[in-house]
């Protein structure tokens, strides 16, 4: 474990807590893409299957349980909670996220570390995570008013994988030069997708104005 990775995990955890706070405190999920939350739930289930087979550390196992249960809780809230589900922007959250799932799965069948069920699921989860934010970014561009908590949620979510990239660089130079193309390339794509959001978020912060993404 190195500082970059720990910072990344904490930023990731924080993004989930911010989203849970927003939904719980305001009893509203306006501006939040349910499709992105569903994709993240698939990412965590597909990647953390080894939760019951390989024990790596208490930290590792606890964080996996937290990510799976929190993403499931958010999806449940947006689908079933009587007050929250009413505030879901159904007609704005129109990204065809099934395409992302299919494309990631095909990619995982072609590019994986070993053609085994677990490795293909792992690669699938890495590819899917890289693009899972797309429905949320599209929704942000559509819903003009981005409330602070939703903006902070996306900001922390983008920052977490950026910290992971620093972690991979650090590990490459300190733990023997093993190349891990799959997470590296996917992580770069994932962080690049946030580039324009980071840019407009920074502008809104600098000029102290509401965050507005250009359509």
């Amino acid at each position: 474990m190195n500082a970059f990775r720990f910072l990344g995990d904490m930023t990731h955890l924080f993004s989930v807590l911010v989203l849970l706070l927003k939904i719980y405190a305001t009893k509203s999920c306006s501006g939040v893409s349910r499709k992105t939350q569903e994709l993240y739930m698939v990412v965590f289930v597909a990647r953390y299957m080894d939760l019951f087979t390989d024990y790596i550390s208490l930290y590792n196992s606890v964080m996996k349980v937290v990510f799976i249960t929190s993403s499931a809780a958010i999806v449940w809230c947006m689908r079933r909670h009587p007050q929250v589900r009413r505030t879901y922007d159904r007609d704005q959250d129109t990204f065809r996220h099934v395409v992302l799932v299919a494309a990631s799965f095909v990619l995982a069948l072609i590019f994986n570390e070993r053609f085994t069920f677990r490795e293909i699921c792992w690669a699938f989860s890495i590819y899917l995570e890289a693009v899972a934010i797309l429905p949320q970014l599209v929704l942000l561009q559509r819903s003009r008013n981005v409330d602070n908590l939703t903006g902070q949620y996306v900001l922390f979510l983008g920052a977490y994988r950026a910290f992971y990239i620093l972690n991979w660089i650090y590990r490459y130079f300190t733990e023997g030069h093993t190349s891990r193309w799959i997470p590296w390339i996917a992580g770069l794509v994932q962080t690049a997708l946030y580039a324009d959001f980071f840019y407009y978020y920074f502008l809104s912060w600098k000029n102290n104005v509401k965050l507005e993404l250009p359509a």
Binding site: R5, D9, M63, K64, F67, W122, Y164, N167, R180, P183
Partner: peptide
């Protein structure tokens, strides 16, 4: 086993 085998990252 090698790092690549053991997925120790989240």
């Amino acid at each position: 086993d090698s790092y690549a085998e053991k997925k120790d990252e989240l």
